[in-house]
């Protein structure tokens, strides 16, 4: 074998070996979710189903029980979107405006606020739980969708602000200066010059914030509405408390269903995502 051929083989070998690590869990979950209960208990987790069945998926979606409720995870799905859509819109819109103000109207005070937010994103969320509960109580929205919309908007803002700020810093200042000279104001510049250029980073922000909210567990667990818990808390609860002989295939199917929206979003927007990420997040 030539030296180049050997190198190529090693290269692909290494890439394939790593691919196994990354694909194994997905493979194991997919095959398990299509097995009958008897088979999922007997057979090896790597074996393909001898009889393929969609029964676990149907059951997980619409009739698996948690406590007395046997509605599967469908209701939690809708509940999660009810929270995620307004929260993503708000967090992205506010983050864009904040990022623009910080990047293009720099002042020492704005820099300090940015630093406070940036360092703040390292603060463990546990520090916020008790005061959040009290705040939600004072607003009478504890245990409601509004409460979670507020929480996710608030804690989405640091990320969106950071993304947009870093993106806008790279825009030439001359653009803004020229527009100011032409008489455009702060908001006018934002809406007519800055916003139209924000496409790539906005997509990244929407994907990241949506995934963050959809995949959130801690807030869902602590502040979720009774019977309408957001999906991750609901799935974890279903897996932990489903009764009788544990239906691993149904549980795994439930986990797969809960993973699908963000997974599909990723596959659908992967190209944008990678491009946006490399343009935005890198330039800090």
């Amino acid at each position: 074998m030539t030296r180049r051929g050997l190198q190529g083989a090693l290269l692909y070998g290494a890439l394939f070996a790593c691919a196994i690590y990354f694909l194994a869990p997905l493979y194991v979950m997919i095959v398990a979710s299509f097995k009958t209960l008897a088979e999922v208990r007997e057979s090896s987790i790597t074996a393909l189903p001898t009889v393929w069945t969609v029964e676990p998926w149907i059951k997980a979606w619409s009739s698996a029980c948690s406590g007395l409720e046997c509605n599967g995870i469908r209701p939690y799905f809708l509940a999660t979107f009810e929270i995620a859509i307004p929260a993503v819109s708000l967090a992205v819109a506010i983050g864009a405006l904040n990022g623009y103000a910080m990047a293009k109207w720099r002042s020492r005070a704005a820099d300090i606020i940015f630093a406070l937010i940036l360092i703040g994103s390292f603060v463990p969320l546990q520090l916020f739980l008790i005061p959040l509960a009290i705040t939600l109580r004072e607003l009478s929205i504890y245990g409601t969708s509004f409460g979670l919309v507020l929480i996710h908007t608030v804690y989405g803002i640091p990320l969106t602000t950071m993304l947009f700020r870093n993106f806008y810093v790279a825009l030439p200042d001359e653009l803004i200066r020229a527009a100011t000279m032409d008489g455009a104001g702060f908001f006018k510049i934002f809406s007519s010059i800055v916003m139209p250029m924000s496409g790539p980073i906005a997509i990244v922000a929407v994907i990241l914030v949506f995934s963050g909210i959809y995949n959130d567990f801690l807030f869902a667990l602590t502040f979720g509405e009774t019977g309408k818990r957001p999906i991750m808390a609901a799935v974890q609860n279903l897996v932990a408390s489903s009764y009788g002989i544990k239906e691993h295939n149904v549980n795994i199917a439930a986990v797969m269903i809960s993973a699908l929206p963000t997974l599909l979003l990723f596959f659908a927007t992967g190209r944008f995502f990678v491009r946006g990420l490399t343009q935005g997040a890198l330039k800090g």
């Binding site: 948690s66 406590g67 409720e69 509960a133 009290i134 109580r137 504890y142 502040f223 009774t226």
Partner: peptide, 26 residues
């Protein structure tokens, strides 16, 4: 009727404690 089921007693009591603080207990 409406109910919320938890995997164990510790989890259900934890939820109630959190809901006390939030002013919205079961």
């Amino acid at each position: 009727w409406s109910d919320t089921a938890f995997p164990d007693s510790e989890a259900s009591i934890a939820s109630v404690k959190a809901r006390f603080i939030g002013g919205n207990p079961p």
